[in-house]
C-alpha cells in the first residue's frame, strides 16, 4: 500500500462506529499494514463506515468531545468570557443605570467599531461556545424499524456543559437584542 493510501485507509477506519472499531479495528489496521493496496481500499473502508453507521445501530458520537466534555466546556467558557463580559457590563451600565460602569465600558465598545475582527469574534463567540459545550453531550443513533430507519437523538446531562450552553444562549440573545435595538435607534435617528 502506498503511504498516502495507508494513511487514507487508517483515517477511513476511524470513521467506523466505536463498537465496530473495538471489535475489528485492530485486525483491519493489521490488514492495512500488511496488504498491498491503494486509495481504493480507503474508499472501500469509507463505504463500509457509512454502512456500519446506517445499519449497525451503533452510536454516532463526536469523538473526542464525547469522551472529554469537561475540557470542551472549559474552552467554551474561555471563548465566551469576553463577549459575556462586554454584554454583561453593558447591560449593568445601561439597563440597570449604573453610570460608572457605563462610562467605563462605552469607550471600549466604541473602539470595537474600528476593530472589525475583534467585533466579529465577539459576535460569533457565543455560537461557537454553544456548539463546543453541547456537541460532547450528543449521542446520535440510526435505529432500524418500520417503516424505515429513524434518527434517535439523545442528549446526556453534564451540568458544566449545560450551564455554559445556557449562558452562551442568553449572551447571544442579549447581544442580538442589543444589535437590533442599536439598529432601530440609528434608523430612527
Amino acid at each position: 500500500m502506498t503511504r498516502i493510501g495507508r494513511r487514507a485507509a487508517r483515517l477511513a477506519l476511524r470513521l467506523h462506529p466505536r463498537a465496530w472499531r473495538e471489535r475489528y479495528g485492530f485486525e483491519v489496521a493489521g490488514l492495512i499494514d500488511d496488504s498491498d493496496s491503494s486509495l481504493a481500499d480507503a474508499a472501500d473502508l469509507a463505504r463500509s463506515a457509512i454502512h456500519a453507521h446506517a445499519t449497525g445501530g451503533a452510536p454516532m458520537r463526536f469523538e473526542p468531545a464525547y469522551r472529554h466534555p469537561g475540557p470542551f466546556a472549559a474552552v467554551a467558557a474561555l471563548l465566551l468570557l469576553p463577549t459575556f463580559a462586554v454584554v454583561g457590563l453593558s447591560l449593568i451600565g445601561h439597563e440597570l443605570g449604573v453610570t460608572a460602569v457605563a462610562n467605563a465600558v462605552d469607550p471600549w465598545i466604541a473602539r470595537l467599531d474600528d476593530a472589525r475582527a475583534l467585533d466579529l469574534f465577539l459576535v460569533l463567540a457565543p455560537a461557537i461556545a454553544f456548539l463546543l459545550a453541547l456537541v460532547p453531550l450528543l449521542d446520535l443513533r440510526i435505529e432500524r424499524g418500520e417503516p424505515g430507519p429513524t434518527l434517535a437523538v439523545r442528549v446526556r446531562a453534564v451540568p458544566a456543559n449545560l450551564v455554559i450552553g445556557a449562558v452562551a444562549i442568553l449572551t447571544a440573545a442579549a447581544l442580538v437584542g442589543h444589535i437590533v435595538t442599536e439598529s432601530v435607534l440609528r434608523i430612527g435617528a
Partner: peptide
Amino acid sequence: RHGHAILLDVREFAGVRLGPGTLYGAIG
C-alpha cells in the same frame, strides 16, 4: 483463515479483490 489470508484466497479462486471494508463487513 485470518483476514489477509481470506483476501488472498478469494483473489486466487474467484479473481475478486475484496476491499478491507467489504471483507470485514462480510465477516461481521
